[in-house]
Amino acid sequence: MHQKLSFYVDRDSFLHHLNPLTKLTLVLTLVILSFLGLSYWLPTIIFLFIIIPLSFLGKVAQEFFNATVKLLLPVVGFLFVMQAFFHPDGTQVIFSIWIFDVTVESLSFAYLTASRILTMVASFLILLLTTHPSDLMSDLTRRGVSGNLSYVITSTLQIIPQMQVKAGTIIDAQQSRGLETTGNVFNRVKAVVPLVGPLVFGSLVEVEERAIAIEARAFTAPLKKTSLREIPDRAAERAARWIFIGVIIIAIGLRIWLL
């Protein structure tokens, strides 16, 4: 059955109606602020007091928390543990396991890194949850981003689920001929080999046909492309984007001046 590889949730909210570029600029501003290191707690504050409220404003809080707990926290948690144990500097040892020491410094560094990554990924998550991929790419193409790049991004979103379906079919076919695909790790790894051939070579053949198909649809015509999707952009949003850019410039200025 058809699935899609897109976080987009179709709701009617203030965030959904914003121009994609406005949201993208906001996200970049938040990410840059988190990484500039103006203040130790800034990434945490952005996450708690900007990103979480935004998820409610966009009416996607439930999906946001789901994705954060299931996808983000395990990754960020792993990162935190690794940094806490393997950060090289640090003198104030809290506890040790074998030759690895957890120090105040390593713990503090681990928290900063984890909170930055969390804030960065969560900001993009808000963008993806409230922006249809076609809208984002159409808007960027209209503003001069290469049509080829947009095509690669939007088609990847569609093609990956199709490849998953195809991989499933190939596995079924191999299993019906007696291939062991379950059981211990060794069996499972062995089972991947007969999957890769048909999947990869099949895809290469498809690439040629798809190239012909989009060429037949005038994809490379040397004309300025138009878009079926109508994407709103208000004067207030243009002003907001300049404000975000101003914030970024001031933040970078502060960073250089404070250093």
């Binding site: 899609k4 076609s134 095509y151 569609q158 198909a213």
Partner: peptide, 9 residues
């Protein structure tokens, strides 16, 4: 299947 542009929803 291969004639679908793949970039449209």
């Amino acid at each position: 299947f291969n004639q679908i542009s793949g970039s449209k929803f």
